[in-house]
Design a protein around this nucleic acid. Structure first.
Length: 792
DNA sequence: AGCACGCCGACT
DNA sequence: GTCGGCGTGCTC
């Protein structure tokens, strides 16, 4: 029998094995068909393409289980992957068999798998990277893995530690040995459902070596609190750094233990559903609903959602950020109970146990109302009747992590792949949404006062380039006299005000104080950004860079810098203006306790745009944009759209009130402002923005993509970037389709020099064709970003 | 991503 | 004479 084992090592064909008894629909008499089955493509959560595996040994012939998770051999161990399709068959070499199908129904929605696959191919981004970004659970198999030798096989040749006749825990054998036995087809394996546990840490009575005082402290705390679920929690409780905790573990004074999983309880839905309204919304495959306040849009949506839920169908609602998600949840989650189903909120805020619990409810059809972040995209609902994409114009839909996916793009692909209707719902439409039929709700009444810095009674002072302060005449800066007057009224009446300040430092606009000219990019028709540290003007769109001109190229006067005032400066000014009035600050650096404001007490809140993700203070009477131009002059062709959106968000922020909006600006005639004044909503885009975009070749008329080239050596990066440009032109790219290469806005990122090309392409087929010319090796890292967003 | 293999500088 | 830097390449 020993010779038989040796024979298996050299013979390519596998012995006939007993089929695994738990495989659904399989009978022991049926011969294995895996040798004739086409391989599966399996995505692993790694930045690599999907890999091919044969179906598990003895699995019945049938459709490829797309969206199911499967355990596959990986570097000598088993790892979890997702089946994404059938192999295209060109892979050479001998393929390994997948080991075990983990699910009995799709774990990820098949339309989601299709959408990721499509985008991965177009963007030349490894599919595994997209999965690891967007599938936020399931990468650990909670199974009890047992093994035994195939009947009649002698495994002695593999060494002393090998399985024998009876089922035994796989963990009692070295993984590498098991894999060698498995590869020879001599291993029977079974996987039983195991209760979910988490790894925790428990103090031991003593260790191998002594402890330093800090380690002693960590050990003592662990002993007192009992087992803790993570090293970070332990180190936080003990008030020591994570490395101290790691040392305690290494010295044997603590050990890891399996703890029962934390409670999977989910946030409970709001019980009160919105009042019914007639469903007059479009029936087209893709439609939109814009304008109004968020609770008005939600109320309009409620009828459609209610009807679908009553039919037992699923509705998936996707939000770009926590605030949008919270509002949608508050307004709509009550619909589920009414329809006899459940609502789940799925986002990164859930712990792993909660994620699994929620995913199970969705996949089992128990929760038909699904709201969440991009992590909810793959939710395996068996019958989605509608996908709702909230605030599609938000930059937060662009994922910053590895895949750089743009969620609206994925959602559109998913809706198409699953033939699921898609509703695009938000405060303001993105220019790309205007082609879709839909409804626009009347905007909330805007009470607007514009402080016009562009026409001060006196000429502003001229100063050297380094002068940090702008002094536009007698209007008052950075808090204008007009704004100050209203602020005093707010104080007298005991009301509340919120002032938005541009972010501090980084970069701002360069403007001629005489003629208001702002230098723009010759390639892109956007304002150039001012980089203080490099003393340069830079286009964040195509990478064009130039030195700061001494004189204005329009009027010849000396130029100087206008730096946007930061929150601290504004706080200081308001304190001076309103002695005794509480002033709060909320920005990336500092968050004051805003409880008094929430309770309705008088006060002024100064913050960056982030304050809009908070709930509006109840007694809000005044909103101030201290320097609107900072939002406007960011170097991005979407600046106008973003400014328009900001204004609309401000006007619609408070659920009932229409506070006075004071806008201090150098561009009082900007179309976004005038369309706010005229009370029209949709007029902004067709009249100005879309025409400009058409002329310049921007979305929605062109698809945008960037090709980033990066290398540790600057010269090589530049050279390869040029090579990429030449390749694209060689493949037929025309002038205007490819811009650059140009050095990236950040001269050096983590030790590499990035260069960037901008592609403006008519349609996806052509983009795919051009990018296809780059499907070869370059001497530097080449990465494609589809639908890039300005870092603005 | 890990993790190996592989080829050139500072040291027990 | 080794130890170790991270560049390049592979994982089914």
């Amino acid at each position: 029998m020993g010779r038989w084992g040796i024979c298996q090592l050299v013979c390519p064909h596998l012995p006939v094995r007993l089929p695994l008894p738990y495989w659904p629909g399989m009978s022991a008499a049926e011969p294995s068909r895996s040798s004739i089955a086409r391989p599966w493509q399996v995505a692993l959560p790694l930045p690599i393409p999907a890999l091919d595996f044969l179906p598990p040994h003895g699995s019945p012939a049938g459709p490829v289980p797309v969206g199911f998770r499967v355990l596959v051999p990986w570097r000598g161990e088993l790892t979890v992957g997702v089946v994404v399709g059938e192999s295209e068959g060109k892979a050479g070499g001998r393929l390994r068999e997948a080991v075990h199908l983990l699910d009995e129904r799709p774990f990820a929605h098949t339309a989601f798998v299709a959408a990721l696959g499509g985008l991965s191919r177009l963007a030349r981004t490894p599919l595994g990277l997209m999965f690891s970004d967007l599938l936020g659970l399931g990468w650990e198999a909670h199974v009890d893995h047992q093994v035994r030798a195939v009947a009649g096989a002698d495994l002695a040749v593999f060494g002393p530690q090998v399985p024998h006749g009876d089922w035994a825990e796989a963990s009692s054998y070295p993984a590498g040995v098991l894999d060698a036995v498995r590869e020879q087809g001599l291993l029977d394996e079974r996987f039983l459902p195991a209760p979910r546990t988490v790894t925790g840490y428990r103090a031991m009575p003593s260790g191998s070596t002594g402890l330093t005082p800090r380690q002693e402290q960590a050990w003592e705390v662990l002993g007192r609190t009992g087992p803790l679920a993570s090293q970070s929690e332990w180190s936080a409780r003990a008030g020591v750094s994570p490395s101290v905790v790691a040392q305690v573990l290494a010295r044997g004074w603590a050990e890891s233990v399996q703890l029962p999983a934390p409670s999977p309880e989910l946030p409970s839905p709001v019980q009160e559903p919105p009042r019914p309204q007639p469903d007059t919304l479009p029936q087209e495959p893709v439609w939109r609903l814009h304008g109004g306040r968020s609770h008005e849009r939600h109320a309009r949506l409620a009828a459609r959602i209610r009807r679908l839920l009553s039919l037992g169908r699923g509705v998936l609602i996707l939000a770009p950020d926590g605030a949008t998600l919270r509002h949608a949840w508050n307004d709509l989650s009550g619909l589920a109970r009414e329809a006899g189903t459940r609502a789940v909120c799925f986002s990164g805020a859930l712990n792993p146990a909660q994620r699994e619990h929620a995913w199970g409810l969705i996949g089992g059809g128990e929760a038909n109302l699904i709201m969440g972040s991009a992590l909810a995209l793959g939710a395996p609902h068996p019958d989605l009747g509608l996908i709702v994409l909230l605030e599609e114009a938000s930059d937060a839909h662009k994922l910053l992590s590895g895949s750089r996916a743009f969620v609206p793009e994925l959602v559109a692909r998913m809706a198409a792949a699953g033939e699921t209707p898609l509703a695009i719902v938000g405060c303001v439409p993105a220019a790309e949404s205007l082609v879709h039929p839909g409804e626009v709700l009347p905007p909330p009444r805007a009470r607007l006062h514009v402080v016009d810095y562009s026409a001060p009674p006196e000429q502003p002072e001229l100063g050297p380039l380094s002068s940090p302060h702008l002094k536009p005449g007698d209007l008052g800066y950075p808090v204008s006299h007009d704004l100050a007057r209203v602020l005093r009224q707010v104080q007298e009446r005991g009301r509340q005000a919120v002032l938005l300040a541009p972010r501090r430092g980084y970069s701002a606009l360069l403007r001629c104080p005489s003629c208001q000219h702002t230098p723009g990019c010759p390639n892109c028709d956007v304002a150039l950004r001012f980089h203080q540290e490099r003393r340069a003007l830079h286009c964040h769109q195509c990478g064009y860079e130039t030195v700061i001109p001494d004189r204005c190229d329009q009027c010849g006067d000396p130029m100087w810098q206008a730096r946007g005032p930061g929150t601290e400066w504004i706080v200081q000014e308001v304190r001076k203006l309103l002695p005794g009035m509480p002033v709060y600050r909320h920005d990336g650096d500092h968050q004051d306790d805003l409880a008094p404001l929430r309770a309705g007490e008088p006060g002024v809140l100064v913050g960056t745009q982030g304050v809009l993700s908070l709930d509006a203070p109840p007694n809000l009477a005044l909103l101030g944009l201290t320097l609107a131009d900072t939002w406007l002059n960011i170097s991005d062709f979407r600046a106008g759209e973003r400014y328009h959106r900001l204004l609309r968000q401000l006007v619609a922020w408070h659920p009932e009130r229409s506070p006075l909006l004071v806008v201090q600006t150098f561009q009082p005639t900007h179309p976004a402002l005038s369309c706010l004044l005229s009370g029209q909503d949709a007029g902004y885009y067709p009249a100005t923005e879309v025409r400009v975009r058409q002329e310049l070749g921007y979305p929605p008329h062109r698809l945008l993509a960037t090709v980033e080239v990066a290398a540790r050596d600057r010269g090589r990066a530049a050279q390869v970037a040029q090579e990429v440009a030449d390749t694209l032109h060689g493949a037929g790219a025309q002038t205007g389709e490819v811009l650059g290469p140009a050095p990236s806005p950040l001269a050096r990122v983590r030790g590499v020099y990035p260069y960037q090309l901008l592609l403006r392409i008519r349609n996806e087929g052509r983009l795919d064709e051009l990018l296809g010319s780059l499907d070869r090796r370059f001497a530097a890292r080449v990465r494609v970003d589809i639908s890039p967003r300005g870092t603005g």
